[in-house]
């Protein structure tokens, strides 16, 4: 799987991938935590997953790049299609899925033993691939994560020397270096100040020009600002989480079909 630099660059521009989850159920041991979730993520769309804590948004997100199966006791039913291919089909290497479906975590987690530059290139080293021009790749990824100007003079400084917001944008740049088709973001701004949050939201909007983004957020305004479509998850008392409503973001926030959605987006519970 030796992808050349040219492929990496073209894939950033040309490839359009869409993702679809059909009838997803999730269990942890005996506990049924997510029930019958079906969502479509068209190419180059931004989808926000909202809902109260513990309703399975993050769990669902992790099923989309096969990180879910790393949790002991995890179970899954249903199908996830990436360009019409089932990512859970026997013989599919989870590593190849994770290379195409990148992920940014809630807490910034740059590799502390590596430099800023090393972190951006970490994905290539970890997947044992090469690029023709490392410096160019580093610059373009950091640019796309809107952090290049802040770090261009100290690319060899340890990643831990950055602020929380910068670390999170570095983590985004690290994911971009692999030129994923899909980017999953699990509450990427929950630990950040308003300024960093705004920068990341701008980044998401720019990324959606050539990438499909799925973002979990607790921030209603953020969902409205960045997403094209929104799914509202809810887990009622003793019940597994499920999708109450899914649709165009503007419609869902201005004229929700379900009273529970209306209550949630207006801050009446959760």
């Amino acid at each position: 799987m030796d992808v050349q630099a040219s492929n990496l660059t073209t894939s950033l521009l040309d490839r359009e991938s869409h993702l679809e989850a059909r009838n997803i159920h999730v269990w942890f041991k005996e506990r049924h935590v997510l029930s019958d979730v079906s969502l479509q993520f068209p190419a180059n769309s931004v989808t926000a997953l909202i809902g109260p804590s513990g309703c399975g948004k993050s769990t669902f997100l992790r099923t989309l790049n096969r990180m879910h199966e790393l949790i002991p006791g995890a179970g899954l039913a249903g199908t996830i299609y990436l360009d019409n291919e089932d990512i859970y089909a026997p013989g599919v290497d989870p590593v190849s899925i994770r290379l195409r479906v990148g992920m940014v975590f809630q807490k910034p987690n740059p590799f502390p033993t590596m430099t800023i530059k090393g972190n951006v290139l970490a994905g290539l080293r970890l997947s044992n691939r090469r690029t023709r021009d490392e410096n160019e790749l580093v610059e373009s990824c950091l640019n796309r994560a809107s952090i290049w100007n802040e770090v261009k003079d100290r690319l060899d400084a340890p990643a831990g020397s950055l602020s929380g917001g910068q670390q999170q944008r570095l983590c985004i740049a690290r994911s971009l270096a692999l030129a994923p088709d899909i980017l999953l973001m699990d509450e990427p701004c929950s630990a950040l100040d308003p300024g960093s949050t705004r920068r990341i939201e701008e980044t998401i909007r720019e990324l959606s020009a050539d990438m499909t983004v799925v973002i979990v957020t607790h921030n209603m305004q953020q969902a409205q600002r960045v997403s094209d479509q929104t799914a509202f998850f809810l887990a009622e008392e003793g019940q597994p989480g499920h999708v109450v409503e899914f649709g165009n973001t503007d419609n869902l926030f201005s004229a929700p079909n379900d009273p529970r959605t209306e209550d949630y987006v207006n801050g009446r519970f959760g």
């Binding site: 590593v95 994770r98 290379l99 975590f105 987690n109 997947s127 994911s175 692999l178």
Partner: peptide, 9 residues
């Protein structure tokens, strides 16, 4: 998680 999510074996 970060390393595995970057497609590392």
């Amino acid at each position: 998680s970060a390393a595995l999510a970057l497609g590392a074996p």
